[in-house]
Design a protein around this nucleic acid. Sequence first.
DNA 1: TTGTTTCTAATGGTTTACCATGATTTTTTA
DNA 2: TAAAAAATCATGGTAAACCATTAGAAACAA
Lengths: 210, 210
Amino acid sequence: MYDKNKIKLAIVDDHPMILEGLKSLLEKDTKFLVFSFTKGTAVIDFIQENKIDVVLLDIVLSDGNGLDFCKIIKQKAPQSIVIALSNQAERSIIFRFLENGGNGYILKNADSLEIIEGIEKALIGDLALSKEVQEIMLRTSVTDFELPRLTKREKQILQAIAKGNTSAEIAEQLFISLITVETHRRNLLQKFKAKNMMELVKIATENQLI
Amino acid sequence: MYDKNKIKLAIVDDHPMILEGLKSLLEKDTKFLVFSFTKGTAVIDFIQENKIDVVLLDIVLSDGNGLDFCKIIKQKAPQSIVIALSNQAERSIIFRFLENGGNGYILKNADSLEIIEGIEKALIGDLALSKEVQEIMLRTSVTDFELPRLTKREKQILQAIAKGNTSAEIAEQLFISLITVETHRRNLLQKFKAKNMMELVKIATENQLI
DNA sequence: TTGTTTCTAATGGTTTACCATGATTTTTTA
DNA sequence: TAAAAAATCATGGTAAACCATTAGAAACAA
C-alpha cells in the first residue's frame, strides 16, 4: 500500500463527487497516491504530520478560501507544491493565489491530461498553468487597473448596498446620517471610477472585495 | 468490450474533469459501461442510434439546459432513464425536471455511493432522489418562495442591468424605447417582489438565473 | 505631536429609478 | 386558429440615486 516512491497527492474540494472522481482518475496512474479532504483545515492538520508532495486545492471551500489555505500550507510545509484547481477564473484571484506561494492554477474545465501534465510540470519546478489560465493572465486589458482598497466603513456600506438596502436603511442600521451614507456612496463611485452602484458591486464581488 | 449484460450509462456534463472522474469512478463497478458527452445535443444524437439505459444529465450545459434535454430524450427514447446530476438546488428546477419526465435528481454534493444507489433505484422503477433533494422537495411554503421564470428579453435586460448599464443605455443597445426598458424593470421587480434592482440582481445571480 | 486618512455632515441641484395603470402588437403554444 | 404569454409604448408622478463642493471631528501612524 504505502510506497516511498509514489507521489503523494492531497486533493481538497468540498464536493465528494469531484473528490472521488479525481482520486479514481489519478490513481489509474499508479505513481500517484491520493488523499482526499473536504475541509481546508483538515488538510492543514494532515500535512503537518505527513509529508505530501502536491496539494490540489479548490478556491471556494466551506471553511475558508483557498488563497488563505495556500499561504498557510506554504508556511507549514514549504516543500509541498500547491496547485489551485478551481472554477474561479478571475484574473485577480489567480494572481493573488500565485502571490501567496501557489505553484500553479488549473481551471476545472481542464481535462485530466492537463491536470496530470500540470502536476508533473510543478514537480520539476515549473509553474503549472492550464491553457485558459494562461490566456486570462495575459489579458493586458482595460480591466487591468489597480483595484482601490476599501476602508472598513466603506466595505460595510458596500455590503449593505449589495444586499439591496437603500441609503436611508443603511443610515438607520449604522446610526449615521443619510447624508454620510450618500457621501460614502460618492467616494466609492469615484474611487472605482464606476458609473453606478450596480457596476461597482459587480467589480467588488468579482474581485472578492466584499 | 461490449457486453449485453452491462448497464449502459451516458454522462452529460460540460466539465471534462467531472466527466472523466465520474466515468473512472463508475467503471470501477464492472457492471457499468459509460459513455461521456460534453454537449446535450451530442447525447441526443447518440441515443437515437444506440440503446442507453441511463442518462446522467447536468442542468447547466453550454448548449442548452438539462430541463429541455430531458424532455427531448424522453420523447426520442422513452425507455431510457434520465437522472439529473447538478449543482442546481432550486426547488422549482427540481420539480420542473421531474415534470419533464426525469426519473431522479441528485445533487453534485452527493458522494459516489448515493449516485450508484440512485442509478440502481431508478433502474427498478423508483424515483432516484438524493438526500438533500428530498429535503428541498419537502420544504414547506414558508422558506419556499417559488422563483419566477425569466423571459428571453427579461433575462437580456437583467444581464445588462447587472453589468451596470442604465435604462437609457439598454434601450439604445436593444433598439427599443426607454419606456419599454422601464416597463421590463417594473415587471421584474414585481415578479420577484424585490425592493430594487440591486436586490433582484442578487437573487438572480445567487440562483444562476442570469 | 503633527500630518494623513477616515468618518462624519451639510447645501442645493440633476438624473435615474421606481410606482400605478392602461393599451397595442407580436410571438408562442395549446 | 384561438387563447395566452411576451414585448412594445405611453402618461404623469414620487422616491432614490448621483453630482459638486466644502468642512469639522475622530482615529491612526510617522
